[in-house]
């Protein structure tokens, strides 16, 4: 009405064609943008385990090039990170001779070590109640599946048909140095794979301490003798045997 009455003063219509076009465009955009939730939902960045087609193996998480040492991860403490003596595999011994440890085959066909030339005798971590608690917890996560609740090698996976591992409770392993257990957890042995990537070094030592506690628990008569033998070179002379014994009494019966 207005436009027709005042044609001369105001030749444009109230709403121009361009404005209508813009409004239509806006409406169409709003409708389309309902489906655009995924802009913020999946942002163009890579989080853990995301796929990345740029690399041949499609992994966004890249592995360190071989030989790379991140700052603070030199791990030069051989006793703590490898469970080996400081001079093992070096000096006059070549890598081949250093690795030589006497082995034999036991009744279930496992190849077992009978001498431990390179392994350190004692746990480099002070054995405390906290360490044993941690070791118990980690043992029940990673080891119990095959080695069983008390370490006799009757875990659930073994009952499902996995080859039976040697029991902890024979003279050979009672006399084995702590470093041997650490080495087997770290690098695997026989049919057991390496658990080095699943269990950090500190936890491996906790597990070693707990395995010692299990051994004492299943061998009460040898307990006193073992404690006396170990007392000479123990890092912590009083707590290990005491806490180990109480630990066993607490957990011996309640394992499934």
């Amino acid at each position: 009405m207005l436009t027709s009455n005042f044609k001369v003063q105001n030749p444009k219509p109230l709403i121009s064609n361009r404005a209508i076009f813009c409004l239509l465009l806006l409406a169409a955009y709003s409708l389309l943008s309902l489906g655009c939730r995924y802009d913020m939902q999946d942002q163009p960045r890579y989080k853990a385990f995301k796929k990345n087609d740029f690399f041949a193996d499609n992994k966004a998480m890249r592995e360190l090039p071989e030989g790379t040492v991140a700052r603070g991860y030199l791990r030069e403490n051989k006793a703590f990170y490898q469970g080996k003596k400081e001079n093992a595999g070096s000096n006059n011994a070549t890598a081949a001779t250093a690795a030589v440890a006497a082995t034999t085959t036991d009744a279930s066909g496992n190849t077992v070590v009978t001498s431990f030339p390179d392994a350190i005798e004692k746990n480099p971590v002070p054995v405390t109640q906290e360490l044993l608690d941690r070791g118990e917890q980690r043992y029940k996560v990673f080891c119990i599946v095959c080695h069983g609740p008390v370490g006799s090698g009757d875990g659930m996976v073994v009952r499902r048909g996995y080859p039976k591992p040697p029991t902890y409770h024979d003279d050979r392993l009672r006399g084995a140095p702590d470093g041997h257990f650490f080495d087997v957890i770290t690098n695997g042995w026989g049919k057991m794979n390496s658990y080095g990537s699943q269990i950090p070094a500190a936890d491996r030592w906790a597990i070693v301490a707990y395995i010692r506690a299990l051994q004492i628990s299943q061998n009460p008569n040898g307990n006193v003798q073992m404690t006396q033998n170990n007392a000479g070179n123990a890092v912590n002379q009083t707590t290990p045997s005491n806490s180990a014994t109480t630990q066993n009494q607490n957990t011996g019966g309640q394992n499934r």
Binding site: A48, F49, V145, V157, G161, Y162, P163, K191, N193, Y195
Partner: peptide, 20 residues
């Protein structure tokens, strides 16, 4: 220890399934 619970590497499967 991390924000992600972690998807196991195939190595973890093979811990048992190299035999079972």
């Amino acid at each position: 220890t991390s924000y992600s619970a972690g998807i196991p590497p195939t190595q973890t499967c093979m811990n048992c399934h190299n035999q079972l």
